[in-house]
Design a binder for these strands. Sequence first.
DNA 1: AAAATATTGCTATGGTCAATAGCTTTTACG
DNA 2: CGTAAAAGCTATTGACCATAGCAATATTTT
Lengths: 146, 146
Amino acid sequence: MVEDTRALPSPAETLELLPGYLLRRAATAMMSELSARLAPLDLRISDATLLLLVSDRHDLTSSEIGKVLDIQRANMVPLLNRLEAAGLVRREPIDRKSQAIVLTEAGQDHLAKVKSITASFEDDLLARIPAQHRAHLVPALRALIG
Amino acid sequence: MVEDTRALPSPAETLELLPGYLLRRAATAMMSELSARLAPLDLRISDATLLLLVSDRHDLTSSEIGKVLDIQRANMVPLLNRLEAAGLVRREPIDRKSQAIVLTEAGQDHLAKVKSITASFEDDLLARIPAQHRAHLVPALRALIG
DNA sequence: AAAATATTGCTATGGTCAATAGCTTTTACG
DNA sequence: CGTAAAAGCTATTGACCATAGCAATATTTT
């Protein structure tokens, strides 16, 4: 009996070999864990990503951020409103049409915490991957994004 | 005016090395492509996954399917209602509490098409990954889910 | 310079997906 | 028995993404 490590007749076997399916499952599992780790900061994943992206730049507009993060203009609005309401971000006029998104001091403070949380999170993620596969994940994912 | 040949100083570089971020991006890109390929069948990804899982089994309950697919009981309901309304799935009483989810004939037909779509989709996915990384993706993802 | 076009930021709305709480009925177990 | 667990459901909420459209401004073309 001992060598039957796989207890189940595994109705899921069909699925567990499909990279697409695995990708989805891995992404949702990863995101729910990251959400939990960010919860103490009261930040969502998109919030934290935006903080990381903006960092100490003073020249990024909402549209540009949206392009990089693949978030549509319309959906940037509530995101920025929330961050602005939380005092983490400021809208600074560039000209009369555009405005730069800039971190406030509180935003910089949060950013530091975000950095430490994400760094250890990424470490933990990679640590779960058997060593011989570890280095291949990032290049493979990048190829998938194209 | 400004000969800004390299359009971006790559504000995204920070992010593109984070496995967590890449995982999310790769998953959403993959899902939107798969959705498009399933659209002709009028199936969503979860629908197709369920068809693949049930296949020709006659003993899977809604709860069991949910456990395998990581979908909560409550969220199985609208999914099954939709599939039942589309005539792809039937609820067959097991006892007075449980019911088996079974594919109808139309469901079997759809399943065959789903199989062919997903097979070529997975092939295409893998083809995008440089050969030396290809074999590592599935084990790495499984480790992340595990 | 004037006119056409593109971009920016926004409103409003709807759809998908998942999470939670709670309910009823039925089965399992000490 | 009687209590606990499980099954299926309702209802609601929230996060996230997509579309359409608008007003103001900037850019490009003529």
